[in-house]
Design a protein around this nucleic acid. Structure first.
Length: 281
DNA sequence: CAACGGACCTGCCTGC
DNA sequence: TGCAGGCAGGTCCGTT
């Protein structure tokens, strides 16, 4: 479920419910996620949620102290939440019944409750008590795909000596963040580049096209996520709002929408990779 | 450095 | 119907 558009949609969906809201309690029901959930997050009770933002696929929630005098308004820290392969965050009320795989719960004074749900437990919940951008998980990340810092020149410059497949290259978070397995295949299809081609063999013009398609496809998907925002908190399972837009992902054996040839599925870097052998070279 | 494989988990689908 | 096997949208880490 969570590629960048889902993570962005999640941020936008939870933000209005929790920003400015005061935490009554934080409970860890299952600390065994990708890394142990620190006990210290339970001490955020009594704090007020500030900004809800995102870096790559990490959801970041600033939390400030409210308690006495001097420390009032001082940052208590930033929650770092990753949804892994199967995670989700949902807003409910504090008497909503817990579901299987609800691993953490943030209850607010006004009755709102934020729950972290993750069957596969590949995600994480961490607390950074310093400048979160210096956190080991965030400090070495490449640019955001929708920012001006990311463009074809960036891709071209960094790929010159890289023989790794271009698909692996664009999924490398040191190069650019937020390009997951689905959108990597989709972007490469639009750019006419086979996923297995060596990164160093993608020329400057193709890098320009690839970067532009990554921006377009991710941007569109985020916009569509936005259209489901209204009932976001109630939604069960994956929305599937982009599945109709997919040109190659998950379509092996089906006809290419451009040329009619059969879509292929090849494992590259241990991940399924879909492409059209005629449209992509 | 770069490349690669393994690791972390559960659920769901397929085929015998 | 049961069960083994394969597969899944992420990404860090250790080894070569």
């Amino acid at each position: 479920m969570p590629e960048l558009p889902e993570v962005e949609t999640t941020c936008r969906g939870i933000e209005p419910h929790i920003t400015g809201n005061d935490l009554q309690s934080v409970s860890v029901l299952q600390p065994s996620l990708r890394w142990p959930v620190p006990d210290s997050i339970e001490k955020l009770a009594g704090c007020r949620v500030g900004r809800v933002w995102r870096r790559a696929k990490y959801i970041l929630i600033d939390v400030n102290r409210l308690t006495s005098n001097r420390s009032k308004g001082a940052p208590a820290g930033t929650l770092i939440i990753h949804l892994g392969m199967s995670g989700s965050l949902r807003i409910c009320s504090n008497n909503t019944e817990l579901r299987k795989h609800d691993h953490a719960e943030f209850r607010f004074h006004n009755g709102v409750c934020l729950r972290y749900h993750d069957p596969r437990r590949f995600g994480c919940i961490l607390l950074s008590e310093q400048d979160v951008s210096e956190h080991a998980l965030l400090s070495k990340l490449g640019p955001e795909p929708l920012s001006e810092a990311f463009d074809g020149k960036h891709l071209h410059r960094l790929s010159r000596k890289r023989k790794t497949p271009i698909k692996n290259f664009i999924m490398d978070s040191h190069i650019v963040v937020g390009v997951g397995n689905i959108y990597a295949s989709e972007s490469l299809f639009s750019a006419g580049i086979r996923p297995g081609r060596s990164a160093s063999r993608v020329n400057a013009a193709q890098c320009d096209a690839l970067a532009a398609h990554i921006k377009r496809i991710l941007g569109n998907a985020i916009e569509m996520g936005g259209t489901t925002l209204r009932d976001f908190v109630n939604s069960e399972g994956s929305p599937g709002y982009f599945s109709q837009q997919l040109q190659v992902y998950g379509r092996s054996g089906e006809a290419c929408r451009e040329c009619g040839d059969g879509i292929k599925n090849k494992v590259i870097g241990q991940r399924s990779s879909f492409y059209c052998p005629t449209c992509q070279s």
